[in-house]
Write a protein that binds this DNA or RNA. Structure first.
Lengths: 354, 354
DNA sequence: ACAAATAGTGTGTCCGCACACACGTTTCTT
DNA sequence: AAGAAACGTGTGTGCGGACACACTATTTGT
């Protein structure tokens, strides 16, 4: 299509008065091009808004892209399975189309392992890294190493502000909290007298705590902004290490002895445990129960209406987009949006997917 | 990758003891192949599960895919702009990647024009059709013609059940109604006495009426299912032809004279008009206002909280997926999912995108 | 019976790009 | 000063498939 809309390497070469080989070298940073020529070619590329033909590129290249993925370990049905599904889907789809993508997985369940596994990736021949930044201190050290070793990386789910990543893909947790607050506010609007609201923090993986806190902040912030504190009585419950259902039950039972809340907000994905307790003790009237993430156990509770609303941040899509962005960046040298914010979805029984 | 996993035309030719030209003819049904050879090649293709390399195929083919798009006409900021944006985005993105996709637009504002424009598409050299089925009768006649003239088509936004389309992309309107009902139910839960709820039908394009009705049915169905009718007093208001804001204002004012509702559900995308009236008359307490679709004027009303919730059915994504599905079907002969149901999104001020 | 049409098959070029390699020119070495 | 290395540039091949064309063997028409 020399006459058409598409510009080819050949067109650039002609315009620059050099051969396609030289243009190729510039595009791939293979060096061995004199500075003035290089500049001119880059200029022309920009001017003509050259976009390489992906099909030709993939067809000609026999290189296998290796992605390093650093995420928390998980059991089936837990939150981190969702991003993983998205990642797998993206890789499969691109490979189907003739690409050669390969994933190397690194998982952790502690801050130390997080750092250790992260450092491993540097020595391996990995083209790009997708990670969830667990703890702040370790993340800073890791990111520094990635940067110095010229490994591009993408953060998903939580951000580390100001980091030299290709992109951050996720959502502002404060906004999540605000949204939940709005729902609770609206639904308790016609209650006369003081409305009793519980906030329960039920942490699971080591890095969640930050997100949970940020959500709580957003949640509080809503009521503060609207000067509604007087109409509400808030109680925050930290159950960070209450692993078993029984332990949760006991705490909930004790609390229900004191008061029956109108609404309960669980800041993490383990709402189903609270739902389990409520099913046992059946307080009347049933408190409104809101939590996060579309994991199977939560979905079941939404189905039977023990959980009223779930907020979700497109966890699966986060994984998909991370892979896609990395591929586009690596093979296309395309600039990636620095922040890709997910939609905040509100789910209830009537609009569950499937 | 003769030794790799991927099978090429060449591999098939070798196994069949013929040339790649012959294999090519079989694959493309270009004829001029003896029956026994043809059979053998088909057999081998199946046996080896041959999947053409998409990149090579797109690269070599200079064919331009022409898509016919049949949608209601619209003004800027109206609902149908959203699917259009998705369609444009998909085409642009695929063209960027080396495809040659071209869209031919056909629009209508009446049932007659809908049919007329639809029939036009048959005589033009269009490879595939994307349409929103406006009215039932005309749709049936159109679909019949598409079928007989071997034009594949995809339905978006509303379905015509049992139609021989490649795919339907959209959402069940009944479910939308259910979801709205759930929201209203929850938010009026603590009101003592009978809760007054209005349902307003404000139709815009000729074909919307079906969807609006289905939403209303879903809405009613929720309350019927839960046997809540006694707690509510419902009022349905049809404003199908009230075009101007002033006409709407007058009707709303008259109604507000009779009663102040607790909640108002507008079944279409023109909630902003009702919001406009409410802003003028400021009934106290402010009724809960819920409607559909993330169009700019509605978004503004959500921002200033005159609209409390918007339900949206990923209108933009519908357009995107329609194009993508059509391309995949036409160029890869890939089977497309018969029904692609969108997520039902609930938006409120705190979780608006952007 | 012989030219013309046709069915059946193989070959070659091109799509846009990646990458190995060849080649000519400087600039270092020692 | 002559060879080696480094630099800068151009050429050629191949990725897998689409499609035009060439060619042969057979059938058809008159």
């Amino acid at each position: 299509m020399a006459n058409g809309t598409h510009i080819r390497i050949k067109d650039i070469a002609e315009k620059a008065g050099c051969s396609i080989g030289t243009v190729d070298r510039v595009i791939h940073n293979r060096g061995k091009v004199s500075e003035p020529v290089r500049e001119r070619i880059l200029q022309i590329i920009k001017e003509l808004d050259y976009k390489p033909n992906v099909n030709a590129r993939v067809l000609a290249s026999k290189h296998t892209l290796i992605l390093g993925i650093l995420l928390p370990s998980y059991k089936k049905g837990e939150y981190w399975e969702l991003p993983r599904l998205g990642i797998d889907e993206a890789i499969e789809r691109y490979n189907e189309q003739g690409y050669n993508i390969e994933a190397r997985w690194f998982t952790y369940n502690s801050a130390e392992k997080y750092y250790r596994e992260g450092m491993k990736m540097i020595s391996e021949e990995i083209d790009g890294i997708i990670l969830n930044p667990a703890t702040y201190k370790e993340s800073v050290r890791l990111v520094r190493s990635f940067f110095q070793n010229n490994k591009p990386f993408i953060l998903i789910d939580s951000d580390i502000h100001g980091t030299p990543s290709l992109s951050f893909i996720g959502k502002d947790p404060v906004q999540s909290g605000l949204t939940v607050a709005k729902l609770i506010h609206q639904m308790t609007r016609y209650i006369t007298g003081r409305k009793k609201v519980w906030t329960i923090n039920l942490a699971s993986s080591p890095n969640q705590s930050y997100a949970l806190l940020a959500r709580e902040i957003g949640f509080m912030n809503y009521f503060a902004d609207k000067q509604l504190q007087e109409n509400y009585s808030f109680r925050t419950i930290d159950m960070n290490d209450a692993g078993t259902q029984k332990a949760v039950d006991e705490q909930i039972e004790a609390l229900l002895g004191k008061e029956n809340p109108h609404a309960i907000y669980v800041t993490g994905s383990r709402v189903y445990k609270i739902a389990g307790s409520l099913k046992k003790f059946r307080p009347e009237p049933k408190p409104l129960l809101i939590g996060h993430d579309l994991i199977p156990r939560n979905i079941n509770c939404v189905r039977d209406e023990t959980i009223d609303f779930l907020i979700e941040e497109e966890a699966r899509r986060q994984g998909y987009l991370a892979v896609e962005s990395m591929i586009r960046s690596l093979t296309y040298k395309e600039a990636i949006q620095k922040k890709q914010m997910m939609n905040l979805m509100i789910y209830t029984r009537e609009n569950l997917p499937l």
